[in-house]
Design a protein around this nucleic acid. Sequence first.
DNA 1: CAAATCAATCGATAGACATCTAATTAGATG
DNA 2: CATCTAATTAGATGTCTATCGATTGATTTG
Lengths: 191, 191
Amino acid sequence: MPESHLQALLAFFKAMSNESRLRLVGLLSERERSVQELAELLDLKEPTVSHHLAVLKELGLVTVRAAGTTRWHALDAQALEAMNRALLEPAAALAPPAAESWEDKVLATFVEPDGTLKLIPASRRKRTVILKWLTAKFQDGRRYPEAEVNATIQRHHWDSATLRRELIGAGMMARHDNVYWRMPAADWRLG
Amino acid sequence: MPESHLQALLAFFKAMSNESRLRLVGLLSERERSVQELAELLDLKEPTVSHHLAVLKELGLVTVRAAGTTRWHALDAQALEAMNRALLEPAAALAPPAAESWEDKVLATFVEPDGTLKLIPASRRKRTVILKWLTAKFQDGRRYPEAEVNATIQRHHWDSATLRRELIGAGMMARHDNVYWRMPAADWRLG
DNA sequence: CAAATCAATCGATAGACATCTAATTAGATG
DNA sequence: CATCTAATTAGATGTCTATCGATTGATTTG
């Protein structure tokens, strides 16, 4: 078993092995919530909730979006699924690590481990990689009001207006009557 | 989220959130091993390994088979898969618990939580349930020498000779030249 | 700017737990 | 039965961490 994979698994299990954090993940799986709200629901003080959220953010399982003085925390469903997939494939645990693709390198360059987009790449080709990654934050087949699109993007970058337009421009998302949805990959305008 | 499911998940995560135990599961996933051997490989003292094995046994993830003064510990691959499946389906976490089937009740009656078969049911119908459960301990498509068949059965009951014959009789396993293999469910002789 | 709100950080504490040594149990063997 | 081997149990210890109260920081609003 490669050491790095073991450590990643271990970090994930440690994060989920505390009752408060497990409940917290359950609550966030429904919708984004504020620290106050979580403290109330979990019957904990706010500093304690902050602490737990920090642990989950460190792993990239939770992202934040600031609105006024309130900070909305949400589960990154993509990251959670990736963890689960890793658990399910014991073969992967023994296989040699796959070579890092060019796209992985772009992502590593522009995205912080906690999911924050450092800046929007100027190069069209690199921007496309980021847009693909961002598209994956939206569920296939679901309809999103504009406010929710903005909120979702803002978990990763402040400029939701620009990125929203880029997603439409790349054909990755579509809009009608201020309702947005994800497009099948076949329809994306790449290159 | 139903409380019992949360607690089960929590127990699983707690078990896997310790580096020694995680390595231990990795080692047992290859083959069964003794406490001595594990202590050597993990660079721990034997009592420590015993402690960790007790945790995993409590959850039914590990079973034991005694041979002389040595006790061979093995992963219950079936139990581990079941845990993983439970993790993967967040919907299941919210759904009302399914009604317990008659087969579940039979299993609960005759099998200890740690995987030990209390006794072999006298009733043919109940015995079939147990045999199905036992068959699932063998991988599909793999060939087993008789010694390994016995070892596997003995993790659950001392009388491997009787149970081995029953498995053959029920058409769940087949033998040729002292090599055994699992049969497709379509060929089982039920009722 | 002042006051209010929401959250993060700091420092302290109590409880959980991983690990060890020492003692005990259980089985095998002469 | 005495002895040897393998493993578990008991007890002790040090480390980690979940939680809290108090403080500080950031943002909005009067």
